[in-house]
Design a protein around this nucleic acid. Structure first.
Length: 564
RNA sequence: GCCCCCGUAGCUCAGGGGAUAGAGCGCCGCCCUCCGGAGGCGGAAGCGUAGGUUCGAAUCCUACCGGGGGCACCA
């Protein structure tokens, strides 16, 4: 009995009441009802507020409505008891057997447990990181790498067709500054005032010289061009590798330069002009974005004839839509929040719906503290805190987990000393430890011959009488089963709300439920005890729990170790 | 001045209208004869302020106070 099944049972009961004329619901019976886990044990296994919602519509007070529904529900399959409490809550107790069967269902579903087709009709383009190829990925980009990739996994798990995309800004003034910085470094000159500093500039400049030893003998402009093209290439290769090592691979690396060279920008502008959303003023071409909610109209083509930065975004968005993406998600740092209005307005200028066809997700800043003092993270200052720094300090698993376990719309402070000194304080270890402990129990079960050496529990499911779900009747077993039953809902909510951190928090709760179960319920036979049905039942629960934790960690891109 | 995000326990944070607001860390006190004590059990301690909507608000709305970030024919 999962919450979804219980919801369906309640809906069926409501329909029966409605059809019998016992209650009259003018708006009909809803497709689903809210079923939640009450905070307090006294309120049963599950509670629903449906009587509070529908009582008034039926012309009854909520408690009367609740009583009618409770009577109807009392005889339903899998329901052990129904109580009415407070203003009209229905507190429902589920039969142990109906609940225990979930363990078998999870084991049988394996790595697919928690997946759904909730997003099956959606083709989603997920753009994140998109760091400029002028330096390593800093912490803001690292946060999006962890969160965006997790979100992509969650969408896919929920049935969506997801394309992960990286927009590569290889066009514009910052690239020139990058090239000049490399050239200056190679010549042993100081960093240009508006240039990029730091060790990586020196490293890349050296690599460019290795690739083309005579580069400094070329005329200045040609040399700079070599540093530009080779340097950007090297930088980009490095970024790709860093992300790959972080467990993040993109399906598409989109080059801004291509938009300008292919005529896509001109095409987008033409389209907007046809729609009557551009005009000329002061020698420049403007986008009439103010009428769609932007603070003011924006320049697309500057008076010097160059495309403004926005022109690339226009063409890029149109390109995504032409590739068939109904939903284009773009993840940006809080320092870009000023773009949200104009990007949404741009979307509207194309005749699309902001928030539907284009969705901008803003992630707040990540701050690093060292010895309690803030560390600046600026490419330009050279005191760059990079993805690699973070991984080196705490490892990929801890880094991904730490960045993904918070909502994106809150600032995070990470104290380097704390993370490096006390890794056991990191919640990821709590969850991974639970997985290792679960795996260890299964190893031991195999050693004792309770299950086959390959630790397969599916064979137990096929044997008649191999698994008696009613044996999982202990309070802690019920708690754990109800926690496991939540997983599909958590995944769906994480996808709908674009909040991967829900999965992490859920895993921490579930790991806690497991540790409590483990503390009160002996899984393996003790001493000379013969293995019996209770051991089989609990082993299935162990494997079900291990499956959920492994699936959840997988959604976050964090490993689920069998040993630690 | 305008815009965005945040304000929940000593600290770091969960809580997408429901009942007695949770977790980790820290603090106090307990629990190892056998499956991993990297664990479990108990205790002290909290929704920035003021209004509003609602049967019901940490959650939605408004104002104010506090913290962070942003407001280019830069990219």
């Amino acid at each position: 009995m999962t919450p979804d099944q219980l919801s369906a049972t309640i809906v069926a009961a409501l329909n029966a009441l409605n059809e019998a004329g016992t209650v009259r619901l003018p708006d009909g019976v809803p497709d689903t009802v809210v079923v939640e886990r009450p905070r307090s044990k006294e309120h049963g296994d599950y509670a629903t507020n449906v009587a509070l919602q529908l009582g008034k519509k039926a012309g009854l007070n909520p408690r009367e409505f609740a009583q009618l529904l409770a009577d109807q529900l009392a005889g339903a399959d899998g329901i052990a008891g129904v109580d009415i409490a407070g203003p009209g809550f229905l507190n429902i107790t589920v039969e142990a057997g109906a609940q225990g069967i979930l363990a078998a269902q999870i084991v049988s579903a394996g790595s697919t447990y928690g997946s759904s087709d909730a997003f099956a009709s959606e083709k989603i383009n997920l753009e994140f990181v998109s760091a400029n190829p002028t330096g390593p990925i800093h912490l803001g980009g690292t946060r999006w790498a962890a969160v965006g990739d997790a979100l992509g996994r969650i969408f896919s798990f929920s049935g969506a067709a997801v394309t992960r995309e990286y927009y590569f800004n290889d066009h514009g003034a910052q690239i020139d500054r990058f090239a000049r910085s490399l050239l200056a470094s190679a010549k042993g000159e100081p960093t240009p005032e508006d240039g990029y500093g730091g060790q990586y500039i020196e490293d890349i400049a050296n690599d460019v010289r290795k690739a083309q030893p005579d580069v400094l003998d070329l005329p200045e402009a040609e040399a700079q061009e070599v540093f530009r093209s080779v340097g950007v290439d090297l930088m980009f290769t490095e970024i790709k590798k860093t992300l790959h090592d972080f467990g993040v691979d993109f399906d598409v690396y989109f080059h801004e330069n291509d938009l300008h060279e292919s005529g896509a920008v001109a095409k987008a502008i033409q389209r907007l002009t046809e729609l009557g959303n551009t005009y000329e003023k002061d020698g420049a071409l403007w986008l009439a974005s103010e009428k769609y909610g932007d603070d003011k109209d924006r320049v697309i083509i500057k008076s010097d004839g160059e495309g403004a930065y926005l022109s690339g975004d226009l063409a890029y968005y149109l390109n995504k839509r032409e590739r068939g993406f109904d939903r284009c998600l773009i993840m940006l740092g809080a320092d870009h929040h000023g773009y949200v209005g104009r990007l949404n307005a741009m979307c509207a200028c194309f005749g699309d719906v902001p928030g539907v066809n284009l969705e901008i997700l803003i992630g707040q800043m990540v701050n690093l503290l060292s010895e309690g003092a803030p560390v600046r993270m600026s490419k330009r200052s050279g005191t760059v805190i990079t993805l690699e720094d973070l991984v080196e300090a705490i490892g990929v698993d801890a880094a991904r987990y730490a960045l993904a376990r918070y909502t994106s719309d809150t600032n995070i402070d990470i104290d380097l000393g704390l993370w490096t000194r006390a890794s056991s304080e990191n919640p990821v270890f709590y969850v991974q430890y639970a997985h290792a402990r679960l795996a260890s129990i299964l190893r031991n079960a195999a050693d004792l011959g309770v299950i086959s050496a390959d630790r397969s529990l599916r064979s137990l499911l096929d044997q008649p009488g191999g698994f008696d779900p009613a044996l999982l009747a202990h309070e802690k077993e019920g708690d754990l089963l109800r926690a496991l039953a939540e997983f599909p809902r958590v995944v769906t909510a994480a996808a709908q709300l674009r909040e991967p951190h829900r999965v992490a928090r859920y895993l921490e709760d579930t790991a806690a439920s497991f540790h409590k179960f483990y503390d009160s319920c002996r899984v393996l036979p003790m001493g000379d005890e013969e293995p019996g049905p209770i051991h089989v039942a609990r082993l299935l629960l162990v494997e079900a729990t291990r499956t959920v934790i492994a699936n959840g960690l997988g959604l976050l891109g964090v490993s689920a170790p069998d040993r630690m």
